[in-house]
Design a binder for these strands. Structure first.
Length: 111
RNA sequence: CGAGUCGGCCGGGUGAUCGCGGCGCAAGUCGAGGAAAGUCCGGACUCCACAGAGCAGGGUGGUGGGUAACGCCCACCCGGGGUGACCCGCGGGAAAGUGCCACAGAAAACAAACCGCCCCGCAAGGGGUAAGGGUGAAACGGCGGUGUAAGAGACCACCGCACUCCAGGUGACUGGAGUGGCAGGGCAAACCCCACCCGGAGCAAGACCAAGAAGGGCUGAGUCUUCGGACGCAGCCUGCGGACACCGUUUGAGCGCUGCUCGCGCGAGGUGUCCGGGUAGGUCGCACGCUGGCAACGGCGAAGGCGGUUGGCAACAACCGCCGCAGAUGGAUGAUCACCGGCCCUCCGGGGCCACAGAAUCCGGCUUAUAGGCCGACUCGUCCC
RNA sequence: GGUGGCGUGUCUGAGCGGCCGAAAGAGCGCGCCUCGAAAGCGCGUGAGGGGCAACCCUCCGAGGGUUCAAAUCCCUCCGCCACCG
């Protein structure tokens, strides 16, 4: 679904993406995005305890990873994404919100 | 058939497509739970030099077993509940000592006497008594009788209690006989006493590598010397730096063994205040252990599972055979679809739902959450043969 | 993963076996003061249920236990907070 080379794994990568990138908020997630030089687009996820118990958090994280695996190869330029799940993520429509947020971020980065 | 008690088990299945993590060159192979949870106990393991003694502190608390160990499990005893199967119990000691028992009540623990009762007395009052009343959670053995002025274990029978003896049992304890003649109410999940157990921290333990500010100490030989010392070099050890103050270097500051004392060890630095800086890395531990191999893998073993035999009422143990063994680190174990299986609704076309819940060093327990379903043993009631 | 702590009226919080539904302060309501307000002063005020009323019952996060008696002692859960190299 999404290999470890396409994941953000360092606290510094998360911090740089969230501070230097653009941002798009939806009702159950917040997406940060940043252009990168190297080809493999990467993604990272923040799912806090406010989302739910461990089972719910794992499920949300896996759904987000599937969405990112489908979307990342289709971007016109390599990007780093950070997706923060909000407390409504366990019951909301993750798919459409992820896609609209991603197009919003890409439009803003292309401009 | 109805009502109920106890114990055990499962925790949706199959297929297709697209994916993820470990191992492997690859083909391939392995990949969440009965609770993985809470962190309430116990161990393994690691570090604290060794894991020492006494006190303090903490824990456990009927008896006997099981176990690596336990606060767990099994069997039994006692007390309480239930017609019964069965269930519940932190279930040692209150004649070692201390403490507490509010309010009410005369009196709350060692003896006394408020209303009473009885006797003496005209009365005031004095004496006897503890049956009855009243208060209270609890009032100095209970019920009945004898007795008496009224009464009282003062005496008697039964019950309770204490002691002695006998019998049974490893034991807790039980049964029986006799004696005493009623004495010391409760609380130890109050302090405490008794018996037994416990060194502390915890995988963010700990080991190694890299990086780092800027060094510091000891030893050795060398050079210079005003004989106080200074300088660079090598080896080893150690390490955030600086300023100020205080204490100290064999007459021992301080540190460690978590508190105190002893004992033991380390020991030349330590403590306080202020200022400045640094701190997000990797490998192992770690995927059951040891061992051979570059590795996949093989061999041996066990505190794993299953099956069997033997011993035991049982927990469990011994032996034999077979099988299995996730290992991530911003953290894999997933998503979609179809069919079948359950449950609910239905306008009979169909529609909806599928429990609790996600490994993080490992293991043995306990506790808590849990849709639905299966199996076994037993009890009571009713009916039939 | 581990360690430690805390839950009491609407809020902040004391109380740690009995006179405790519970101190104190804030808040809120009413009154005095003022032309009016603020400040100040005085009084009152927890929630739920039952009852015509006087009044009664339950509640200190939840449940169970010890005790004559529990907010307080013991056990098990639930929720929240802090810390670790």
């Amino acid at each position: 679904m999404l290999g470890s080379e396409s994941r953000l794994r360092r606290a510094g990568e998360f911090r740089d993406t969230m501070r230097q990138g653009v941002r798009a908020g939806r009702s159950c997630l917040v997406m940060h995005a940043r252009k990168t030089e190297l080809p493999p687009s990467r993604a990272g996820f923040i799912v806090s305890k406010a989302v739910g118990k461990a089972v719910v958090r794992n499920r949300v994280k896996r759904q987000l990873r599937h969405l990112a695996a489908a979307a990342l190869p289709a971007t016109p330029f390599p990007v780093d994404l950070v997706v923060r799940a909000l407390p409504e993520a366990s019951s909301g429509d993750l798919r459409t919100e992820f896609e609209t947020a991603l197009t919003a971020c890409l439009n803003r980065l292309a401009a």
